[in-house]
Design a protein around this nucleic acid. Structure first.
Lengths: 145, 145
DNA sequence: ATATTTAAAGATAGTTTTGTCTTTATTTAT
DNA sequence: ATAAATAAAGACAAAACTATCTTTAAATAT
């Protein structure tokens, strides 16, 4: 469904939301290990998430690292997809028509539309914080051995 | 959602189902124009669909081309995805965990599962023939200018 | 101030996906 | 039989995606 980069972005952000705070920041080494992702590649992705979109934050230097603000924790999971430029998955025609529309639909349009809206609703209604809480509770996982 | 190759496979197969028969075969030129896809790339894809899976059929030579049997028209759209090796989309964890399961789930697992089953059901219940009939009826499209 | 720690940035490389072009094989029509 | 038409196969290339490594910049602790 999503690219590797977006999968890592989702897992990393949820992990950061679960473990970090303004006081406790996480290094890229720890994050990559915790979510089982390639370290340098994940670093690149997290850097992009700290840019304009500001889903996560970072500071260099001793005791520095990545963290997420209380405000950002309340953002919907979809905001991660937006920051990764992969939000358009929910807009695209399932048969790849670039002008598929209500008046000129592909043969899957109306049936797929229903499911598409459920997907949008799922990623829009779940917050980063909620998923982080699921991990904290101990019965949901970001990495499985 | 799907790769370009699979999008072309879906559109091409539906077009072939709508226009061809054992008597009337379609050339790759016509098909690529009708679904607005790169000709040679589409040819490769159609060749793969004529292999073991036999979603579509072909014969070379004068008045040759691609066609689909009455039997194959009744296959679910999902069989095209299977033939393209992209059926696993419906199995994969949305966060990319390779061992995500009911007992060790990712934080999106149970909510995503519901939607995943609807997707499977959609592609399993719709037949190639049905989508071809939609195009024939004139209010659904495989290409929009 | 300086050294240390950490993320940021940049260069590079491998792999996959997408796409094109040329040659070959096969079928049919004559 | 031969020629023509068509798909099949193969070689190649461009772009995107995934990944690694090195250097630089920034922040902090001392």
């Amino acid at each position: 469904m999503f690219s590797k980069a977006t999968e890592y972005a989702l897992r990393a952000t949820i992990y950061i939301a679960q473990k970090s705070s303004e006081e406790v920041k996480l290094g890229i080494e720890e994050i990559a290990k915790a979510i089982d992702s390639p370290k340098s590649f994940t670093a690149k992705i997290l850097q992009s998430l700290t840019r304009e979109n500001k889903v996560i934050s970072s500071v260099p230097g001793p005791n520095g690292g990545f963290f997420i603000t209380e405000k950002a924790k309340k953002l919907p999971v979809r905001s991660i997809l937006r920051a990764m430029g992969e939000d358009d998955i929910f807009e695209k025609c399932v048969l790849g028509l670039n002008k598929c529309s209500e008046t000129k639909p592909c043969p899957m349009h109306f049936q797929y539309k229903v499911i598409k809206h459920q997907l949008i609703n799922l990623f829009e209604s779940k917050s980063i914080q909620q998923l982080a809480a699921d991990i904290k509770s101990g019965n949901k996982f970001l990495k499985i051995n």
